[in-house]
């Protein structure tokens, strides 16, 4: 009895230990990404894996991990063995560089500042737009409830804040006016969720709120899922988000996956990759592919984060640092 039990435990442990790839012609990659890109990467992987096998003979097994962008960066820093990171924003990826796992200059390693696509923050409203929301000033009217995640924990939350701020300062308003605007805005948020998907659930399933500030791709997904109960409104101005991709150099060196990881990220810049990106409502950077999808992507004015801060590090500190602008006016509801 005891002997069988011991044998069984040893067998189980060996099985677990034996899960590593044994042969050279099969490799395993781990892509650590943020919340709203699950469907995108699933699609990319299903196209990239056969293409890579055809050209190199190597069979790839690509695993995905998704969560809040900041949380995911933290996990990689703590030892999650990502081969590539495809996070929501520059500072999260750069935090991994600061921990010594990514080489300096990563944001120039791939074209377009290592961002294969761009995105922005848009409004999602209830069907028929009953509160008549067209511009940023409309969402802070009395009686309008806003849903968006917490800027402290979420990439979506940060970009929503920056978009709201810039909607004032990029149209000639002063910083004092911007502060007054966001103070009003965050007072009208009944639930501040931790991540993008949490907010989507709040808005669509729990039917809380009149307007949802969210990623453009998430907005489209939401319209599909809600079956026409909600619709997208494009504000005339919003923020330009450029989610970057990077190879985690320390990990690929250990695992011997550098070539495959590079090919994987290079694939995003090919015509096929850009088409998949556009299909999932992320804005492709390839001019020809973008031109073929202009109907999907209305032309709105998008300002970069560097327009309202000196750099990303500065923006992080100025707006979201402890005791800085966001903390100065936001008091959590009790």
């Amino acid at each position: 009895m005891t002997k069988t039990l011991v044998t069984a435990i040893i067998a189980a442990l060996t099985m677990i230990g034996g899960a590593r790839p044994a042969r050279a012609e099969s490799l395993s990659l781990l892509n650590v990404s943020y919340d709203p890109t699950r469907e995108l990467w699933r699609d990319i992987n299903s196209k990239f894996i056969p293409a890579y096998q055809k050209s190199t003979g190597t069979t790839l097994d690509i695993k995905q991990s998704h969560g809040g962008s900041g949380t995911q960066a933290r996990a990689v820093i703590d030892g999650l063995e990502a081969d590539v990171v495809t996070l929501a924003m520059w500072p999260d990826t750069d935090a991994i560089r600061k921990a010594g796992l990514i080489d300096a200059g990563w944001d120039k390693a791939f074209p377009h500042n290592s961002s294969p696509y761009t995105s922005t923050i848009v409004f999602v409203v209830r069907k028929g737009n009953p509160k008549n929301i067209k511009d940023w000033s409309d969402i802070v009217k009395p009686g309008v409830e806003i849903v968006t995640p917490n800027p402290k924990t979420s990439g979506n939350g940060k970009f929503s804040f920056l978009a709201a701020w810039g909607s004032v300062t990029e149209r000639g308003g002063s910083e004092a006016e911007a502060l007054a605007f966001v103070t009003k805005l965050y007072a009208q948020i009944p639930v501040l969720d931790l991540g993008a998907r949490g907010s989507t659930t709040t808005f669509v399933q729990r039917k809380i709120g009149d307007v949802h500030l969210t990623w453009e791709n998430e907005a489209h997904l939401e319209v599909d899922e809600a079956g026409g109960a909600v619709e997208i409104v494009y504000p005339p101005i919003s923020v330009l988000a450029e989610p970057p991709v990077a190879i985690v150099d320390a990990n690929v060196k250990r695992k011997g996956t550098a070539a495959a990881a590079k090919a994987y990220l290079d694939f995003l810049y090919t015509k096929d990759g850009q088409e998949i990106i556009a299909k999932h409502y992320f804005r492709p950077i390839d001019a020809a592919v973008f031109a073929a999808h202009t109907a999907t992507f209305p032309d709105i004015k998008r300002f970069p984060v560097t327009a309202i801060a000196r750099s990303w590090d500065d923006a992080y500190d100025k707006y979201f640092g402890d005791g800085k602008i966001f903390d100065s006016f936001y008091k959590p509801k009790k």
Binding site: L30, K63, Q64, S65, H66, A75, L80
Partner: peptide, 15 residues
Amino acid sequence: EFGAVAVVSGRISGQ
């Protein structure tokens, strides 16, 4: 169990 496992899992689908 969810909470403790969620922190140490790394959330890799299929792994």
